[in-house]
């Protein structure tokens, strides 16, 4: 506060003398501005570079570790960021050929796809009715539903174990398909409500005037306009499913039905032996595609969150 009041009078007085020698001062001024602008750029890039490196370091280290030989990795005096011994593909071979990693990926993918499908099918009508049909209670109901998402799985898996057992789904991928929507749906309903709040609803009414039923109007106007929101729901439920751990650990025991997050953990940590390089490889192989996808949709994610926030 104090600085802004200090600088204000200076800014008012400064331009007065320059008006007298307009041509000279203008060129001087533009030079000064250019210098300042370049200075600003330099600082900006320096800061951006620092944080990029900061964010990328764990990934780089992870990838570096994948190709390290045991003899290199486990010697405490070695510099961890260079190859002291020649790099090796043995760790990848271990992961790919001597564990069920490929099955884990397939399982993850199948479960995630089904969960995404269920989530979208339920969340779109839910968010629509809460924003459009529930009147002034919709907002509060949406927040209540979101609160369900905040109940931790470490608490919920106990009662859900009963449900899974009653349905005879223990040790089956279907247990995850059944249980995961319990957290993807509350979260994504809330997320999509934020998007729906920004839909210009008069286009739906216009479509009804133009000769369509309500469902026809939603299908042809509301949904196409909401594609970014629905994509966000798809990616979020996919990611939430992919990194879920507690339920997967509790409900699935046989290796052939496990997903990546639990399978890698149980197969590459044997007693007190950690297969670090293979663990890193397993993590990197799934993290990179998701990170790229996430990056591609980043703007839309931000739009999704802020739409909800600002309009609320």
């Amino acid at each position: 506060m104090a600085t802004s009041t200090d600088s204000a009078p200076r800014r008012i007085t400064a331009p007065v003398p320059s008006a007298a020698h307009a041509p000279i001062d203008e060129t001087e001024g533009s030079g000064k501005y250019r210098a300042r602008r370049i200075g600003g750029r330099v600082v900006l890039y320096a800061v951006a570079t620092f944080f990029s490196l900061f964010a990328a370091l764990p990934f780089a280290w992870m990838v570096l570790t994948v190709f390290k030989a045991d003899s290199d990795l486990y010697r405490a005096n070695n510099n961890p960021f260079i190859y002291n011994d020649p790099p090796t593909l043995a760790n990848l071979d271990l992961l790919w050929n001597e564990t069920n990693y490929r099955t884990f990926i397939l399982n993850t993918f199948i479960v995630a796809m089904l969960v995404v499908l269920i989530t979208v099918i339920i969340v779109v009508p839910a968010a629509y009715s809460l924003t459009r049909l529930a009147g002034r209670w919709g907002e509060s109901l949406g927040i209540l539903i979101f609160l369900v998402y905040l109940v931790p799985p470490t608490l919920l898996f106990i009662p859900l174990t009963g449900v899974v057992a009653d349905l005879g789904l223990q040790n089956s991928r279907w247990s995850m398909v059944l249980v995961y929507p319990t957290f993807t749906i509350p979260f994504c309903t809330w997320l999509l409500m934020g998007f729906f709040k920004s839909v210009p609803w008069d286009i739906e009414e216009q479509a009804m005037i133009d000769g369509y039923t309500r469902l026809g109007a939603i299908w042809r106007t509301v949904l196409p306009v909401s594609v970014p929101g629905i994509l966000t729901v798809v990616i979020f439920s996919f990611m939430l499913t992919m990194h879920e751990f507690v339920y997967a650990l509790a409900f699935v025991q046989s290796s052939g039905n496990k997903t990546v997050s639990v399978g890698v953990f149980t197969e590459l940590i044997r007693g007190d032996v950690y297969f670090w390089q293979a663990l890193m490889a397993a993590a990197a192989l799934v993290a990179f595609p998701v990170a790229l996808l996430y990056n591609y949709f980043l703007d839309r994610f931000i739009a999704g969150f802020t739409l909800g926030a600002v309009k609320g």
């Binding site: 210009p200 008069d202 286009i203 009414e205 216009q206 009804m208 005037i209 133009d210 039923t213």
Partner: peptide
């Protein structure tokens, strides 16, 4: 009757053009 059956055309204040 629902709007579609009333044989009317309406122009909203916002024009409500389909943005997509």
């Amino acid at each position: 009757l629902p709007p579609r059956a009333r044989q009317i055309a309406m122009v909203f204040q916002s024009y409500a053009l389909y943005p997509h």
